[in-house]
């Protein structure tokens, strides 16, 4: 943001104050670490697996600034010109994290600061952030209603007319999927448009939220969707009749990344938190409750659980390599297209 002028600072400061949720009081150095995260299960798990066993013994008090991702992004952006930000650690999905990293908001992790980063699965590593847990995009289907699909292409089957449901929030995922089966690539989604319009013609239904889609799957209003395996696992646990199939095109990973902002008030503690996060003992705890898989090679899961939520070596080999820059550059345009052409 080199073009931002000084005069802007006041405005941004005002915006920060107004747009940001009334957060945690500013941490005052020493023994604190402020983590900007989602609430609910996720926060509970952070506390139980990272903070209580690994941070408390170091005498570091972890505070949570709980919100969904958009306000956190807004806060990061609004605070970027201020000397002291709110977060020591910011949690975002990989795509959001890349978008923020573009603005040069984060310090780069190094093995000196976070020795455990040597164990990170190379495919998930980034320059600006550390991966916490991950899952991958797969096909969820109702085994009572249809055969196990092998390819994304199987969802374009006229026999499934009106039986494919899509969650509105995952528009980029469907676009990517459609691109991959129509001659596109992670860096070219254009071919997706035609293919998705075919799916629309086949009566695909768009639901406003994941929960609405879940309800439709449960009521067998729709039989198949494209979704994160982790969520599919949780849905299955909740009694929704779905199984998952890893498409032959390869699963696309979704990673929950963590980064330490440049203006973190307790930066050293932020790095200590990152180190703790990557401990094998801390990683496994998220699998059973949330269905997400560890991002470090030295963490292991119970075999039974691993079968349900993790990807085999072969499947990992075939992971789609996401072009974050392409997505960031084209997100607005594709959302526009999605809103008008696909949903309209």
């Amino acid at each position: 943001m080199t073009r931002m002028t000084i005069g802007r600072r006041a405005l941004v400061g005002a915006a920060a104050g107004l747009l940001a949720a009334p957060g945690v009081p500013r941490a005052q150095g020493g023994g604190r670490c402020v983590v900007g995260t989602w609430g609910g299960d996720y926060q509970d798990l952070l506390k139980a697996n990272i903070d209580d066993p690994l941070m408390k013994p170091q005498g570091i008090e972890v505070l949570y600034d709980v919100a969904v991702a958009p306000p956190r992004k807004t806060k990061l952006l609004a605070e970027r010109m201020t000397r002291r930000g709110t977060f020591d650690v910011a949690c975002l999905s990989d795509i959001d994290m890349f978008e923020m990293a573009q603005q040069n908001l984060f310090d780069e992790p190094t093995p000196d600061l976070v020795p455990n980063m040597r164990n990170v699965i190379p495919a998930l590593a980034k320059r600006y952030a550390l991966p916490h847990i991950y899952s991958g995009k797969v096909i969820l289907y109702n085994p009572a209603k249809m055969a196990k699909p092998r390819s994304y292409n199987d969802l374009w089957d006229p026999k499934l007319r009106g039986r494919v449901g899509l969650a509105d929030g995952l528009y980029m995922q469907f676009i990517e999927t459609a691109a991959l089966i129509n001659g596109g690539s992670p860096s070219n989604f254009e071919p997706a448009k035609k293919k998705l319009l075919e799916l629309k013609a086949l009566g695909a239904k768009v639901y406003p939220s994941n929960e609405a889609l879940a309800a439709a799957l449960k009521g067998e209003e729709v039989w198949a969707t494209i979704m994160w395996l982790a969520r599919g696992f949780m849905w299955k646990q909740a009694g929704i009749p779905v199984e998952h199939a890893v498409p032959e095109e390869g699963a696309t990973p979704i990673v929950f990344d963590k980064a330490v902002p440049r203006n973190a008030p307790n930066k050293a503690n932020g790095w200590k938190w990152m180190q703790a996060m990557l401990e094998p003992s801390a990683q496994a705890g998220f699998a059973a409750r949330m269905g997400y898989v560890p991002t470090v090679r030295n963490a292991t899961l119970p075999e039974d659980l691993a079968k349900q939520i993790s990807f085999t070596e072969a499947e990992q080999e075939k992971f789609v390599k996401i072009d974050y820059q392409y997505i960031a550059d084209n997100n607005a345009a594709y959302l526009d297209w999605w809103t008008r052409e696909f949903k309209g």
Partner: peptide, 19 residues
């Protein structure tokens, strides 16, 4: 004040990379 900020923003230009 927020309205003024908002209005000022609306006169800016968007770029996916520079936000």
């Amino acid at each position: 004040a927020p309205l003024a900020v908002l209005f000022r923003y609306s006169l800016n230009r968007y770029s996916p990379r520079e936000f």
